[in-house]
Design a binder for these strands. Sequence first.
DNA 1: TAAAATGTAACTATTATTGTTACATATTTG
DNA 2: CAAATATGTAACAATAATAGTTACATTTTA
Lengths: 143, 143
Amino acid sequence: MSINSRFAVAVHILALLALEGRPLSSKYIAGSVNTNPVVIRRILSLLSKAGFVDTQLGVEGGSTLARPAETITLLEVYNVSEQGQLFALHSNQPNPLCPCGRNIKPTLLTVFQKAEAALEGILAEATIADVVQDIEAQVQSQL
Amino acid sequence: MSINSRFAVAVHILALLALEGRPLSSKYIAGSVNTNPVVIRRILSLLSKAGFVDTQLGVEGGSTLARPAETITLLEVYNVSEQGQLFALHSNQPNPLCPCGRNIKPTLLTVFQKAEAALEGILAEATIADVVQDIEAQVQSQL
DNA sequence: TAAAATGTAACTATTATTGTTACATATTTG
DNA sequence: CAAATATGTAACAATAATAGTTACATTTTA
């Protein structure tokens, strides 16, 4: 029914890394997100494979941004944290003997792809740096 | 991970009703969609409550469109067949003592709402009549 | 060498979806 | 009126995805 919270958590992680600017452990990040460190490590693993973060083992280790926050769009993060199609088509193949059943899938696919492209267009316009800036503005107003 | 197939099936049902223009039973529709009649009746129940179809009990009964196909947008169908937010935020409340945890939800919400609105804008532009027209064009090319 | 950290496997609990059977109820036709 | 046909919905099973958790091998640094 909904895009899972991995995307929201992935953005949270990247924004936190950008804000603090030093290696953060999965335990520390989990404290901010309020979840288990393994949940964070699972997502960090995706982000690392995608080249968004570098990780360092050992004492004083942790993850840092591998690219400037200005260059990481939310669309890239979305694509890393979600897989598969946003809209599901029929779970079973419709009846090929019915004109509607035989032809509806390509028709739906066209609309679904347009809708998803529109959604992705918005996500492509925002970067992690924008998110950080937004958070910092809120923090300022809270002083 | 994905919008469930209810939406696709709901559009299929409405397009089929528009194409045939006579009362169709859930059993008949299920034959086109290739699923169980109860699955169809569950979705018809949603469509009926939303005022898109009328249903008739008894022999020669079934469902018919309650509104012209030109007036039913895919967005309306989407809103009936889906509930809840498209994007999930964190499942647990992030740490309010962390500047990022305290402020990230409103920031994300703004972007998510913009993205969802863009998606809905595309769905609002297409009607069941457009879907039917598309299917009929394909049928023509198959003769 | 000890401490700290990652990466991942394995398991549980929860939830949503889909398909299925069953049945009470309503409606139409002969 | 009776039989046939439909709906609407409850109940249940199977499947899948998500999130949380424990555990542990491995790596790195101090």
